[in-house]
Design a protein around this nucleic acid. Sequence first.
DNA 1: GCAATAGTGTCTGTAAGACAGTATATT
DNA 2: AATATACTGTCTTACAGACACTATTGC
Lengths: 262, 262
Amino acid sequence: MIDKTNKLFDVFQFFTSDNKDYLRNLAVDNVIFGYHEKELKVLLVHNPYTNPWMLPGGYIKKTEDVETAASRVAQQRTGLQDLFLKQFKVFSAPGRNKDPHFTPAVLSEITGKTIDKNHWLFDQIATVGFYTLVEFSKVSVDGSSQEEEVKWFDINDLPPLLHDHDKIITEALKALRHHIYHYPIGYELLPEKFTLPDIRILYQTILGKEMDDRNFARKLTSLGIIEKLEEIKHTRGHRSPYLYVFNKEMYNQALDQGIFFS
Amino acid sequence: MIDKTNKLFDVFQFFTSDNKDYLRNLAVDNVIFGYHEKELKVLLVHNPYTNPWMLPGGYIKKTEDVETAASRVAQQRTGLQDLFLKQFKVFSAPGRNKDPHFTPAVLSEITGKTIDKNHWLFDQIATVGFYTLVEFSKVSVDGSSQEEEVKWFDINDLPPLLHDHDKIITEALKALRHHIYHYPIGYELLPEKFTLPDIRILYQTILGKEMDDRNFARKLTSLGIIEKLEEIKHTRGHRSPYLYVFNKEMYNQALDQGIFFS
DNA sequence: GCAATAGTGTCTGTAAGACAGTATATT
DNA sequence: AATATACTGTCTTACAGACACTATTGC
């Protein structure tokens, strides 16, 4: 017997509404990549009363476009504002949002209401996939004040995921890697001042391969998108590296025109 | 007074159905590019009883994904089969499918039925944009047997278009140009045997700029994606060009790995 | 001195970009 | 001969890719 006084019931208050202000068969899901300690992370959310982890996502109001919905959802769930969210693919395989553990019968029992088997919640839903890159330290992962837990996972060590969210993450990573080969990255992921090893390891982490440090530095400096400072970041036990900053003008120009990274 | 015996009425038989087998707030639109006489064309359709030309598009069944829907729509409207349709963007601006000439009142008058102002037809609809490239000669543009007229338009000489279809075409062209810089094209657009000027002018037409004939030939042959035949295509008034074919293996490899065209 | 990491210079091969002259066909 | 288009070769320069040694810091 399910306890109707728990918070799950509140969640389903929304589910059992008619949802008429939202697009019916379309949603958004955000793959939020963060970089930390030489590892590429993905931000996932977890409703403490249901099982699989999932991407931060949600429905789209009829008065907003999908980009706005993706931003809104990201902010609601993670507190992140003004993200550069990039649309990369629509996921629409028939039955992609079917879940054998979540049926009209189960919902009826939980809510005590009669649930139509054609209820919108069990209808086919396509989702627009977005990805973004964030500086890890900007995100305060503190889900305790909300009904949902929010947590970073290593890209290579993901938990079981809801529906086809594993596939969405795989495709997002593919799109991100395509992006990195043709446009500069790092501005959203690194602190204002960073070292050459910092940015090189970031590239290596995302691309999943080693890069020659000399050729890498030459490439970025000759494009003019990073500039060396006279400052040094003090480390211990070995030589301390110089600090660099992005030249935003050249960086934006490279974003516009595209570059070629091999 | 509107004549209810005309074919427009048949079209609206569909519109006034409940449409329950289709996703409610999502559709697909195809930008079908064709190449002919050094001009880049776009295939548009026209319902003879309503005014603006529009992209071939349609609704998505709940039992199919968006790619299948786009293929189905392309085949229904144009007879084209097995197209490589590439998803490039979702268009979802609020009100994008509003049309001041097409309202519940107008529809009521035409059909003689009472039309709810919340009818799905007037609801917000997002659309997934696809583009494709086809060999012009493969398409028989013969709309006389159908209720809709189908016609090629020069990319630089488009008629007024329905909703935001002009924007969809602009974005499709942008996506196509991005594609051509990173992957080979031509296989779907040129006849089996073609000349060097043929393929160079195709590139020039899509990119909208001149390219050096010597460097262009060197690039494609050194990549191994085209091969010279001993045959000659006989022309008049000047030297006749050699014929070339694609090396499909190298072509596919270039599609997989990506190339760089400057 | 040793360990650990940062930083820099050079060579070589390849490919891009610029460019001009010869070949073929028609009138 | 004149015209129109096709075809090809060379030079220069820039960049990618490979590679090895020196510098700094702490122990």
